[in-house]
Amino acid sequence: MGVVGSISVWMLFITAGLLVGGTWSFYQQDKKGPTVVMGILAALALAGALIVLLGAMP
């Protein structure tokens, strides 16, 4: 994995963390729609980071 792959993994993990924080915030405010959307986006960012990290996607 090169420098670009390493940076993309870090950026995806950071994005996933921020999205999880947003999800929690919306959950505490009892806003169902944004909670679901942010949760799905967080899961996609985490999955993308893991895929790049494991080398399944160059």
Rank of each mutant, 00 (worst) to 15 (best):
M1L: 13
G2Q: 07
G2N: 11
G2F: 09
V3P: 01
V3F: 14
V4H: 03
G5A: 15
S6L: 14
S6K: 12
I7T: 07
I7S: 04
S8G: 09
S8R: 07
S8V: 07
S8K: 09
W10T: 07
W10H: 14
W10M: 11
M11D: 05
M11C: 08
M11Q: 01
L12W: 02
F13G: 01
F13N: 04
I14Y: 08
T15I: 04
G17N: 05
G17Q: 08
L18P: 05
L19M: 11
L19Q: 07
L19W: 07
V20K: 08
V20H: 10
V20S: 09
G21M: 11
G22S: 03
G22W: 00
G22V: 05
T23R: 05
T23W: 03
W24K: 02
S25K: 13
S25H: 07
S25V: 06
F26N: 04
F26T: 02
Y27Q: 11
Q28R: 14
D30A: 10
D30I: 14
K31L: 10
K32A: 13
K32C: 09
K32S: 14
K32E: 15
G33S: 14
G33F: 04
G33I: 05
G33C: 03
G33D: 07
G33A: 11
G33K: 12
P34D: 05
P34F: 06
P34T: 09
P34W: 09
P34H: 00
T35P: 07
T35S: 12
T35V: 15
T35W: 03
V36F: 05
V36E: 02
V36I: 15
V37T: 13
V37I: 15
V37W: 10
V37R: 00
V37S: 08
V37F: 03
M38I: 01
M38K: 01
M38V: 03
M38Y: 06
G39N: 06
G39V: 06
G39L: 08
G39M: 05
I40F: 10
I40Y: 07
I40W: 03
A42K: 01
A42G: 03
A42P: 07
A42H: 06
A42Q: 01
A42W: 02
A43Y: 08
A43D: 11
A43W: 15
L44D: 05
L44I: 15
L44P: 04
A45Y: 05
A45Q: 07
A45M: 06
L46D: 00
L46F: 14
L46T: 12
A47Q: 11
A47N: 09
G48K: 10
G48L: 13
L50S: 08
I51W: 01
V52E: 04
V52F: 01
V52P: 00
V52K: 00
L53I: 02
L53N: 04
L53P: 01
L53S: 08
L53T: 02
L53Y: 08
L54R: 09
L54W: 04
G55N: 02
G55D: 13
P58S: 13
P58Y: 00
